[in-house]
Design a protein around this nucleic acid. Structure first.
Lengths: 346, 346
DNA sequence: TTGTAGGCGTTATCAA
DNA sequence: TTGATAACGCCTACAA
């Protein structure tokens, strides 16, 4: 077994003491050379580095984790990997983590609080450096886990009270209030609402719509159509069809997201309803395609990429110190008013 | 330090020997009880389980990894986390892995072979149980790593010769041949092609188009517009505009993917060009929205979800034994012919 | 069916 | 600046 060094190239991987032996130093010195190069004399450092290189030594993360009681893993739990909203957030996270020492591990809770709990439990067992999760509300068990968790936490997508640790997002209810007011300002008198898969954030958006229409005395429950099914463009068509059959005089549709909005537009076109004059359409999130549809579709622009990027930056700062200064960030949103709600004067 | 058990609830986490002491057995027995319950007497098993439960014991994956030299991690490298194609594949992988012992770890190579190499290296250092990656070609260094890798490998998205291990996908060149022939059969004489971000699979699709048009003596390089930029609906509009300015008599557009196809449709509509009569449009992948556009857009249906699901099933089978039987699977594709290429007789 | 001994590769601590 | 020693928590091999 002592001919290990001879066989190294090919099969066995070198470990710390292999490197140490070859370099004529002790294992711990190699360890230091790798982690704190400044605490090792230039000469031994050079020697060690050349051996590391020659043997192709790569540290074993499991051994390190065992010794330190911590990993470089940052666990990310998203409710969906297909939803455009989260893919943008994920992209921001991945982009920003690249080049850093952090290793992103992704979990898909599929909008299930129980699955989220399972994932958090699994992640925590790995002694992660941090955890990024979506939204304000978790199951009670998950909450308890998180409050006692020995790692940094960033909640994303929403802003609200009592963060576990850090937080970045925006107010969904406020965003939908603004969109609803936009419809009213444009002169629509009978606005409807369609929504799929009512997660907590969707529900708050619906609530914003209800508030504003109620205040304007334009609230009509017959013009609200929702379904637990996951959102698609096709579903946007169907929900629009439902809405128009229940309330044919609807003159505008606020859609819970852009897929639905595109579907709504297609469905209205098929029925020969002119958008924006006969029926206004507004989406949510402002995916890039909204701007190039015919007519261009109004939407509420949300800063998904930025949320991912900054969530990761905050995490990195929190872990590397100094503490990120605002530890709760509201990135806001903007109303992107376009043709689809730009009704001619009536 | 021996009052550990007293403090357990709250701060410290129990480890194997804590459980062992409490249960009045040895650590290894607890370990066995957890992994091979049938190799432990019913009585001790019960006792152990109740203690495990009471102390909230959770095994430390790092310690296990160190002892066994393997983890439950399955590394997945995708070229993009935002591209719809890969989100569907990822969804299939996550769905299928759920409930299994495998832990998915996702890496985003952003279509960069170098980044892919870095990711593979990192994954391998974690001694994963398996690796799932996209496509046939890797950098030479990556190839070497993979060939010597001590884990199972599934290549996804494409089918081709010389898999490292397992493989599931389809023939991109054949798929685009079929789509191109479809256009010709529908009577289009001046087909063009637009493509964004030419990864190897996109290139093979372009190649299929070139082959078939050349054979039909309808090949015209002026009608091929490509860009390295990432694909979006907006870009579909732009590329279409480019194509139509370079070759205004183009009567059909084969698009490298569905985003571009939707953009192409929007652009044509904006120019008052009738689809399918003045200009045919065909996409690739058949995202659900293709079927509900106006007109419905023809596309080539690819089985992305299935690829993800089966990739994971094969991996699971390979790891749990027995070996998955065909270890290379061609899931094929289907031409979804719709209105957008259904030209009236001319 | 259960237990003992030893090791996995790294790092913290303390000493030189 | 460097090193010896002892963990970290679990598992394999062998023994009882």
């Amino acid at each position: 077994m002592n001919d290990k060094l001879l066989i190294l190239r090919g099969n066995l991987k070198a470990n710390l003491s292999d490197v140490a032996k070859e370099a004529g130093v002790s294992a711990i010195t190699v360890s230091r050379a790798l982690r704190h190069p400044d605490k090792v004399s230039k000469k031994t450092l050079d020697k060690i580095m050349s051996v590391v290189d020659r043997l192709g030594y790569i540290p074993d993360p499991a051994a390190r984790a065992l010794a330190v009681g911590k990993t470089n893993v940052i666990g990310v739990v998203v409710p969906s990997v297909t939803n455009n909203v989260f893919s943008d957030v994920m992209r921001g996270i991945f982009e920003t983590s690249e080049g850093s020492k952090w290793q992103i591990q992704l979990g898909n809770s599929r909008y299930s609080p129980l699955e989220e709990e399972r994932l958090v439990r699994t992640f925590l067992s790995q002694k992660p450096a941090g955890l990024i999760l979506s939204g304000l509300e978790q199951s009670e068990a998950t909450s308890k886990l998180l409050m006692n968790a020995d790692c940094r936490i960033v909640q994303i997508m929403e802003c609200g009270p009592a963060p576990y640790d850090m937080m970045i997002g925006f107010s969904h209810i406020e965003a939908s209030r603004v969109a609803t007011r936009h419809l009213l300002e444009k002169g629509y008198k009978k606005p409807g609402y369609i929504a799929a898969r009512l997660d907590p954030r969707s529900q708050r958006r619906l609530q914003g719509f209800e508030e504003v229409t109620t205040a304007a005395k334009l609230y009509d429950p017959a013009r609200i159509v929702t379904t637990p099914r996951p959102s698609t463009v096709t579903l946007g068509c169907e929900l629009t069809a439902d809405l128009l059959s229940k309330a044919p005089d609807t003159d505008a549709i606020l859609c819970n997201n852009d897929d639905l909005a595109l579907g709504a537009l297609f469905e209205c076109q098929r029925r020969g309803l002119n958008t924006p004059n006969e029926i206004g359409i507004c989406g949510f999130n402002d995916l890039e395609m909204m701007a190039v549809a015919n007519p261009a579709i109004s939407s509420v622009r949300t800063h998904r990429l930025q949320i991912g990027q900054q969530a990761m930056s905050m995490m990195d700062a929190a872990l590397a110190g100094p503490e990120p200064d605002p530890s709760v960030i509201d990135v806001g949103f903007e109303m992107s008013a376009r043709e689809s709600t730009n009704r001619s004067a009536k």
